[in-house]
Design a protein around this nucleic acid. Structure first.
Ligand SMILES: [Mn+2]
Ligand SMILES: [Mn+2]
Ligand SMILES: [Zn+2]
Ligand SMILES: [Zn+2]
Lengths: 138, 138
DNA sequence: TAAAACTTGCAACTCTGTTGCAAGTTCTTG
DNA sequence: CAAGAACTTGCAACAGAGTTGCAAGTTTTA
């Protein structure tokens, strides 16, 4: 895992630091999306809030992670599977929020369907957020 | 318009007050969704921030308005066209955010498409947020 | 019209996110 | 490998969004 982490950071021209390594480790070990607060909690308050904010910001810019707008309007983050870059993601999957366990999941198997808007609208990006009960909570 | 406003408020067992009337008036006169800040600005600082928060909260609870999670993670609000109630909206339309003018619009003509998730997921609600260029900015 | 029920504004507070800066760490290059 | 350049971090201070309790004001009911 440490090797993979180094590879990801170097590939994105980022210096390998304790904070970045730890946070990337969390993402790799997690199957659901993480909120800023989850990360602060899981790092055991080992890093300053500001460092966590800046690290997430950096990872977003490099396309290492993507942000997920949740229906309750908090932000969550998840790893990008492909080689994305900021504003240029090519993993256009559906996001799922479980109303029982609260987990937010990337449903990689399902692409966001195309939708036809009325004449005159130019579509650039589509986001789909499904709420319901996940596999584990069923 | 004042009659319509009174009717809506009374129908939802809400007392008719200056703040509620004014805010509902704003929604009725507007074709795009409003953020909290828009409302504060448009009421000309005539009402306390807290009153605006509480009024939006009340309107949400009664199903007079619905909230729209935007992709930049701010919240906007728009009138419900049908008789909705909190958590029981039956106007499942697509939302559009224009990247030029910044307007957020309810596209009533387009329903959110059904999507098939993998085995085991139970779908309760689907939200679709389309980003692009609107009719007026094309 | 008076009392009951509800709404409002204010002050105080929490929570989230941002910025400038100095100290510390990582990277580069000879 | 060492020294300096480049970058990252923590801290303090701050700004903005949202919440709460409470007393004063308004609306509703009867
Ligand atoms: Mn995702
Ligand atoms: Mn809408
Ligand atoms: Zn679940
Ligand atoms: Zn536009």
């Amino acid at each position: 895992m440490q090797e993979q982490i180094q590879k990801i950071l170097k590939h994105n021209q980022l210096s390998v630091t304790g904070g970045r390594t730890k946070i990337l480790e969390l993402f790799l070990a997690q199957d659901d999306a993480l909120a800023h607060a989850d990360i602060e909690r899981k790092t055991g308050e080992k890093f300053d809030r500001v460092t966590v904010y800046r690290t997430l910001q950096t990872f977003l810019e490099k396309g290492i992670i993507h942000s997920i707008p949740t229906s309750d309007n908090s932000v969550k983050y998840a790893l990008c599977k492909d080689n994305c870059s900021e504003g240029h993601h090519h993993d256009h999957h559906v996001h799922f929020m479980c109303s029982v366990c609260g987990k937010t999941l990337c449903i990689d198997e399902v692409s966001v369907p195309v939708v036809n808007l009325p004449e005159g609208y130019k579509v650039e990006q589509i986001q789909m957020i499904v709420t319901g009960v996940c596999k584990d909570c069923a």
